[in-house]
Nucleic acid binder design. Structure first.
Lengths: 221, 221
DNA sequence: TTGTCATCTGTCATCGACTGACATAAATTA
DNA sequence: TAATTTATGTCAGTCGATGACAGATGACAA
């Protein structure tokens, strides 16, 4: 790797570090891009050559995590049921979080709190998750041997993703995220039929299964 | 209602109309607030007295719909299972959409497309949905006779909400939203155990139900 | 009707996020 | 070292958003 690239990588890392530190210290809105750039001793214009927006810098750590997740998912054995693969990929990511140095882990969790508490960042995080979901759907579809936008795949993924959101969202104490995730898995296991994530397309709408809980239309208002 | 309030309401409506029309005609980013305000013949400053941001104006129709949804949900019979209540409330909202004049319905659906295609608006919509979910969780918790942040309630709601996102998100032809929703319901009915949304807290983690699909930990990486 | 009061609105000044254009400096390659 | 590519800084400018002040307008009581 040439000097040029190394330098760029260093600048980028320094910008993210400075940004996160400042955000944690004085809040996201209260921190100007000028201030971040000054901290790293580059011009404001340069900041925007590295990040499309202030938000992108704030969420880049999260974006990295998402990439790791996608990689872990792709690495799961092909014969694993989709939901299991998603779950194990998530456990792997959480495991990495555990393996971090305490200081760094704390910083990451504090950043999570800040995101939850900052509307603009929360919105950005949700959009990021949605982008991620698209990739998950692609992978799950592939595993199911279905077309790229299979509804069953979207169902599995969005069910899983919503668990993730509940996990991160309502947590007062970030150290409980892992516990909460496992609780939600138990809940899912108790709620879902065995093999639900391997349904044949034909199974959809079968009389004996459908309408078990949800009665049909009732010609609404 | 006094003249003052009527006038305010008229201005607000005019601003939303002008904003939506311009957004649809030339795109969200390409439309300045100045332009919207000029269209309604008020100052830019006044625009920001009605809406906290350009985004808020763009999403206000959606926000209204969410309010309707919450109201419909609250109006469902108390003995209805939570997921059924959510489903019927959704059907009611979709029914209202159907009852609209064709021109207005088209406009609304085109707005949906625009939101999906505009990152900033998509992010805003997702945040809006999350706010809404909080209210749904509160209502579902109440129905379950549980505490305000019950995990089961969050699970039910987020499962339902993720269906809504899939519904609106991946739709090429917006007129298929209703069909898609019903398909997803079938899928849910086929995937979930009867009575899953009425689980007793104690049921969580019961050996016979848990671990049916998802094997336990496997001490991850 | 009139005068007082609360409220709405426009104008102005300002900040901060973000972008295009151009010049300069640094790294890469020949 | 010379030539080329690429990253950075400077500058000017747009647009979203906010505070402050002053003038206009509807609400209400005497």
């Amino acid at each position: 790797m040439g000097l040029r690239e190394r330098k760029k990588h260093r600048t980028r890392t320094a910008l993210i570090d400075a940004a996160v530190d400042l955000f944690l210290a004085q809040g996201y809105e209260a921190t100007t891009v000028d201030r971040i750039a000054a901290e790293v001793d580059v011009s404001t214009r340069t900041f925007f050559r590295y990040f499309a927006s202030k938000e992108e810098a704030a969420l880049s750590l999260l974006a990295d995590q998402h990439e790791v997740f996608i990689a872990e998912l792709a690495a799961r054995p092909a014969d694993e049921p989709p939901f299991t693969a998603l779950t194990e990929a998530m456990r792997a990511v959480l495991g990495i979080l555990r393996g971090l140095e305490p200081a760094e882990a704390t910083r990451f969790l504090r950043l999570q709190e800040l995101i939850q508490a900052t509307p603009a960042l929360l919105a950005g995080q949700l959009r990021l998750m949605m982008d991620n979901e698209r990739q998950m759907v692609a992978e799950v579809s592939r595993r199911m041997g279905a077309g790229p936008d299979d509804l069953r795949a979207q169902f599995v993924v969005s069910l899983f993703a919503s668990m993730g959101i509940v996990c991160y969202g309502g947590c007062q104490d970030p150290r409980l995220i892992v516990q909460r995730f496992e609780d939600l898995l138990d809940l899912a296991a108790a709620s879902l039929r065995p093999g639900w994530d391997r349904l044949e397309p034909a199974a959809t709408g079968t009389p004996e299964t459908a309408a078990a809980t949800v009665p049909r239309p009732s010609p609404a208002t």
